[in-house]
Nucleic acid binder design. Structure first.
Length: 481
DNA sequence: TGAAATGTTGGGGCG
DNA sequence: ACGCCCCAACATTTC
């Protein structure tokens, strides 16, 4: 139906980069014109994008579009049901092949398979690649050929199984196709609903170039001390690559190989690198788990948690969301999230534990809030990590591991830098009382201008009581099942 | 990738 | 010098 010079479609989804992009490399390699495409399919399978994700997506598409312009193959933006959009574009251009990197979330995976099937009937071939994970989900199994449910053996097997892919540099030139209609990105209004976020988020952060710079800076400055500094939310000790990895602005292989290169070069030791690569391993673990257990975002991985007596507490949930719980460490985290679309991982654990244990609110409420507010919202990581904290997940933290938000603060934010940044109404309190203002002597509070219940809330729950209640609720589940 | 309760040990004050 | 107590420091166990 089409000649040998027929163009091919390169369907971008969550692989918004030109380097280390297997679908792109393969599409370019066959030597025919390439039509790069992004489809905004708001009625698609799975969850609608959260507000913060939309903001990131717009910026990242802008960056991708500029890079593709430079390479000579402008990005085509289309809106609508993906299959219909693809059919239209195939009609318009005479393309006979669609290259794409697979998504592995169960619903997306199935939708991609449906599209591939439908297009095949029209004589159009879909070629799928893995550009987002070190190993294809389903490829790392126990000796009994079952999915791993425990992280450490999974990680060991993963590291054993994987082979670095061939180098795939970004092509300097891509042969494009003239005159293909494209929507204007600005017309999509991706972040309209959250103008206050857009004003505060870091607009320089999205995009492949920024991701690569971030990785290089991290390896040079922070990798050697990552193991300790990653737990200091007031300090810049983490990579902040989560959103870039989610959107595929950078590949996990690029991260791992650059870290290994730093080890080779003697910049860091193997052990220092290991702590960081393990986190890439957790990302992988989450993706594999979700692929194999599609209900992970919706149902307790351990069914015994189905009987957990969750509280319904709209006021408590609201206080948590807006950072008004009266626990400085929790409030700092929730405000950082709202203001920047990102939260330090140590604090994610603290705020999640607080919601699920101190307030005994269903982890799905927290997961859903994170989904909407995180620029790095990722279905697999988000649901896996919430279930991990709640104790209901695979290889989860035991339920009785209840974070004390005060001691977490004094331990990991000893100098109060983090709390003072995000809860400025407390900033004049001395370190000694910063993480528990209600315990401060009245005159110390007065000197710091803190009026409990006025300038800053009293704790909405008592830590010791909440802890006892959580343990009692957990006990009510019984120990079997 | 915890916290709190409980148990153990050893040094120093003191009768 | 000895036993006793207190308690900090650390280890173990329990939630």
């Amino acid at each position: 139906m089409s000649g040998t010079d027929a163009p091919v479609i390169l369907w971008f989804r969550r692989d918004l980069r030109l380097a280390d992009n297997p679908a792109l490399t393969e599409a370019v390699a066959i030597g025919r014109p390439v039509v790069p495409l992004y489809v905004l399919d708001e009625a698609a399978e799975g969850r609608p994008l959260g507000g913060a994700s939309k903001w990131w997506l717009e910026r990242s598409l802008q960056a991708l579009s500029e890079a593709l312009d430079k390479a000579g193959a402008p990005l085509v933006l289309r809106r609508g049901p993906a299959e219909a959009v693809l059919r239209e574009l195939i009609d318009e251009t005479g393309a006979d092949t669609v290259f794409m990197n697979r998504r592995f979330e169960p619903e997306s995976f199935a939708a991609d398979a449906d599209i591939a099937h439908a297009l095949k009937d029209e004589g159009v071939e879909c070629r799928g690649f893995n550009g987002s994970l070190l190993a294809r989900p389903g490829s790392v199994l126990t000796q009994a050929e079952k999915p791993y449910k425990v992280f450490t053996p999974f990680y060991r097997a993963l590291m054993e199984a994987i082979e670095p892919p061939p180098a795939r540099p970004a092509p300097a030139r891509i042969k494009g196709v003239e005159g293909v209609m494209s929507d204007r990105l600005a017309d999509w209004g991706l972040y309209e609903a959250r103008p206050d976020w857009a004003a505060r988020f870091d607009a320089r952060a999205p995009g492949e170039a920024a991701a690569l710079k971030r990785l290089a800076d991290f390896i040079r400055r922070d990798l050697a001390t990552y193991n300790v500094m990653r737990d200091r939310p007031g300090k810049p000790g983490t990579s902040r690559l989560s959103a870039a990895l989610h959107w595929g602005e950078i590949s996990p292989w690029r991260v791992v190989l650059d870290v290994r290169a730093a080890v080779e070069a003697g910049t860091v030791t193997d052990q220092q690198a290991e702590a960081f690569v393990r986190e890439i391993g957790w990302r992988e673990f989450s993706a594999h788990l979700l692929h194999q257990f599609p209900t992970l975002p919706d149902r307790n991985f351990q069914p015994k948690f189905d009987d957990f007596p969750w509280r319904s507490d709209a006021a408590g949930l609201k206080a948590w969301q807006i950072g008004q719980t009266g626990y400085p460490m929790v409030d700092a985290g929730m405000r950082e999230l709202w203001t920047t679309g990102w939260m330090h991982n140590r604090v994610r654990m603290v705020v999640a534990s607080f919601l699920v244990k101190h307030l005994r609110i269903d982890w799905r409420e927290g997961e859903s809030w994170f989904w909407d507010t995180l620029i790095d919202a990722d279905l697999a990581s988000n649901s896996q990590n919430w279930q991990w904290v709640a104790g209901s997940g695979a290889d989860a933290a035991p339920y009785f591991r209840i974070f004390n938000p005060v001691s977490q603060g004094t331990k990991f934010d000893a100098d109060g830098e983090y709390v003072r940044r995000w809860v400025p109404e407390l900033k004049k309190l001395p370190d000694r009382w910063l993480h528990s203002p209600w315990e401060a002597p009245a005159e110390v509070r007065a000197d710091a201008g803190v009026q409990l219940g006025k300038t800053y809330p009293r704790p909405i729950v008592d830590h010791a009581e909440a802890r006892d209640a959580a343990l009692a609720a957990f006990k009510s589940l019984g120990n079997e099942g």
